[in-house]
Amino acid sequence: MEVRVRVFRFNPEIDRRPRYDVFTVEAEPMDRVLDLLEYIRGDIDGTLSFRRSCGHGICGSDAMRINGRNMLACKALVKNFETNEITVEPLLGLRVLKDLIVDMEPFFEHYRSVLPYLINDEPLPEDGRERLQSPAERERFDDTTKCILCAACTTSCPSFWADGHYVGPAAIVNAHRFIFDSRDRAAAQRLEILNQQMGVWRCRTAFNCTEACPREIKVTQAIAEVKRAIQTGRLD
């Protein structure tokens, strides 16, 4: 089948404003949008820039807007679109550096702000072995361990579009991963950070994040659990 791929183009070195290039390519229904972009860059227009690495939804490099919705280009199959016209654009809310590549620094800055690492200064088990954690305790934060930091959620969030200082869903997901880990001891610190003006209360439960997440993390629910923990001071 023939697919028309409309691609957002912007090279700050020469362009004053963005444009859309249209490439007509032969595609199989099972092709990934990433395959089409690879073909375009390799065989039609080498100047097209985008990020990608693993090609199967784990590394989080190729989040972009495809027909208006955030997804990973490597998990978006041609057959899943109802039309033969596919529009590919960079994520919203982050500065475009070139074509489909956006500046990820503000995103990672928000991520780093929530102390996204285990904090526990208590002595390790005397036998030197693992800390114990029951399967139920482990299950409590399983969903948010799946995050691949692709930024699809944060850049689909109207609150983030409105104000890029908002810490955003991805950072809250990563805070949640530690807040509800029975081995961690810094939940209170993280909840305090997220209780600030640019924390969880900016979330208006639009659910865009949950729909955008390529790992099917229940992002809005995770945010709600953090809100509840702040309100109740309890971690159950």
Partner: peptide, 14 residues
């Protein structure tokens, strides 16, 4: 594990 890696667990928590 001490760094925080969330391993799957046995019923005994190991």
């Amino acid at each position: 594990e001490h760094m925080g890696l969330p391993f799957s667990r046995t019923p005994q928590g190991r």
